[in-house]
Amino acid sequence: MADKRVSLDEALALVPDGATLTAGGFAHSHQPMGFFRALIAEGRSDLSLMGVAECWVAEWLAAAGMLRKAWFSNFMFEGFGRCRRFSEGIENGTIAAEDHSHFGMIMRLVAGAERLPFMPMLSQGGTDIALLGGFEQPEDKIRVIDSPFGDGQRVTVTSPLVPDVAVIHAARADRLGNVQLGGASAVIEEQAAAARTVIVTVEKIVETDEIRRTPEATLLSALTVDAVVHLPFGAWPTGVYGYHDPDMDFLSNYYAASRDAGACSDWVDRHLRAPADHWAWLDAAGMARLLALRTDPVLGYRPAEVPA
């Protein structure tokens, strides 16, 4: 099997203007922010997102003026509040929204992944998610039908979604693209299975023999991965389970700036567009700051500081 390691620049070239993306992560965990920081610095237009919980990706793309529409189920900042630039983009009509439940969004990705015309499921029926389309016609998205097997059961069916590119950040991979990640993995398996092209950024590259020792920890097989980028702290300022906590101070700093469109635009220029590359982005944060986020290997998180 081929060596799939590429540079970050080569991976970015896989995302053209107008691409439909999906990105890994949940709340403040394992979102591929290093990749998207670099994509924002390069600049793209008219991107779409098929997302479940990659709130920071959605927000930063919106803040950079690169997001045109979103199929999604929930974007909010746990512990902070609304994704301001994303939400205001919908309010002022610059971003078109198509709403789902989490399970509804996942089942559309599964239908895409399984190459099926629809997936049956049991939630969403009877609500405006099913009855009122965003930019899709509702009947193209969700229908409630009688089971074809004549048992009288009503069942919701939902149509497939196939993103052009999935971007996932994980703990480690080998050069072939066997990918491992600890902790709650969110939706990365379904996203990677559905997308036409799968880019994975990782904290560490390991030998395939190392992967073979714990094959049960492999969430994405090399068979589904197209490009692997060695990108330490590639989720920062979100966290990576077993590696580092989210940088809540940095996230909070963005959240404060995001309340005002002008201040947010300055923040994006200064923090996201200015760094020349991933290392300059990390240098601006500083090594002490990054190392202070490392998690306790027993607890899986960085315990609150004990007062002296």
């Binding site: 609304r82 205001e88 965003g134």
Partner: peptide
Amino acid sequence: YHHPDVRLPGSGGAND
């Protein structure tokens, strides 16, 4: 819905 005064986060798992 299409031009909301305030856009909220969406369903998430709540509908499910």
